[in-house]
Amino acid sequence: MDDRFTIVDSIEGKVAAFTGEHVGEPRLVIALYAPDAVHVDFKFVSLPDAAIRVDDTKVLWEQDTLLTDTFKTTESKYPQPDPQWIEDRFWIWTHYAATKIARGEYFEALEFLSFIRIVVLSPLALKQANLTPSGVRKIETRLPEFSKKLEQTVARPEKIELTLAVKQCITFYLELREREDIQKNIDAQEICTRYFEDETHQ
């Protein structure tokens, strides 16, 4: 870890690099190389940590067979969305959106919509389609019909558009929830949707 920038800098053409705290991964170094603007992600991990991975990784170079042997000890596993975890939070998130719209904090409400697409709607839709639930990455080509639906959750920073977009998020979530085996919090759903209606129609 102490030598990670020395290693990154030693490769010819480096013009910029930084660590990945913004995605919760300080072991990651994101770098850019000239002359063709090549983006390279470097992740510095110990051998035991390398066994925990989200996809099958091709080994291009290793000492002896150390990395290959480590990979054989576990299977790659992409993190799956937890539908119950989402249900336990979704209605309070809806309440949050209502307060932001009612207060005129429209850009904050826009961030909420993006968050719901990335953390709730797209992962659940991808999971239910037996696809890797990687947020909204390539959702346009992976789930084109669902992608068209997501367009209805995009808004400008205006009260009416934001209200309609949040309502669509609720509608799509309810559709997705019906395909999950969870304990529904109907009380929270009712009180928060009623609150949303009251706050956004004043």
Rank of each mutant, 00 (worst) to 15 (best):
29 V>K: 07
30 I>W: 05
30 I>D: 03
30 I>Q: 06
31 A>M: 03
32 L>N: 08
32 L>F: 12
34 A>C: 05
35 P>I: 11
35 P>M: 11
35 P>G: 11
36 D>S: 09
37 A>N: 09
38 V>D: 12
38 V>Y: 09
39 H>R: 15
39 H>A: 14
40 V>Y: 01
40 V>H: 06
40 V>G: 01
41 D>E: 14
42 F>G: 03
44 F>Q: 05
46 S>K: 13
49 D>S: 12
49 D>M: 07
49 D>H: 05
49 D>W: 05
50 A>D: 08
51 A>G: 10
53 R>P: 04
53 R>G: 04
56 D>L: 03
56 D>M: 04
56 D>W: 03
57 T>C: 05
57 T>P: 00
57 T>W: 07
58 K>Y: 08
59 V>W: 05
61 W>K: 11
61 W>S: 09
62 E>G: 05
62 E>N: 05
62 E>D: 04
62 E>M: 07
63 Q>K: 09
63 Q>W: 06
63 Q>V: 07
64 D>Y: 03
64 D>T: 06
65 T>V: 00
67 L>A: 05
67 L>P: 02
67 L>W: 02
68 T>P: 00
69 D>W: 00
70 T>A: 15
71 F>W: 08
72 K>I: 05
72 K>G: 07
73 T>P: 00
73 T>K: 10
73 T>A: 06
74 T>A: 12
75 E>Q: 12
75 E>T: 09
77 K>F: 09
77 K>L: 12
78 Y>I: 01
80 Q>A: 10
81 P>E: 08
82 D>F: 04
89 R>E: 08
94 T>K: 01
98 A>N: 03
98 A>I: 11
101 I>K: 08
102 A>C: 13
102 A>T: 04
104 G>M: 03
104 G>L: 02
104 G>A: 06
105 E>M: 05
105 E>S: 08
107 F>Q: 11
108 E>H: 13
109 A>S: 11
109 A>F: 04
109 A>K: 01
110 L>E: 11
111 E>W: 10
111 E>R: 12
113 L>N: 06
114 S>I: 11
115 F>L: 09
115 F>P: 00
116 I>L: 09
117 R>T: 08
117 R>G: 06
118 I>P: 00
119 V>Q: 12
122 S>Q: 10
122 S>D: 10
124 L>K: 11
126 L>Y: 02
128 Q>T: 06
129 A>Q: 06
129 A>W: 00
130 N>R: 02
132 T>N: 04
132 T>P: 01
136 V>N: 15
136 V>G: 08
137 R>W: 14
138 K>F: 15
140 E>G: 09
141 T>E: 15
142 R>I: 07
142 R>F: 00
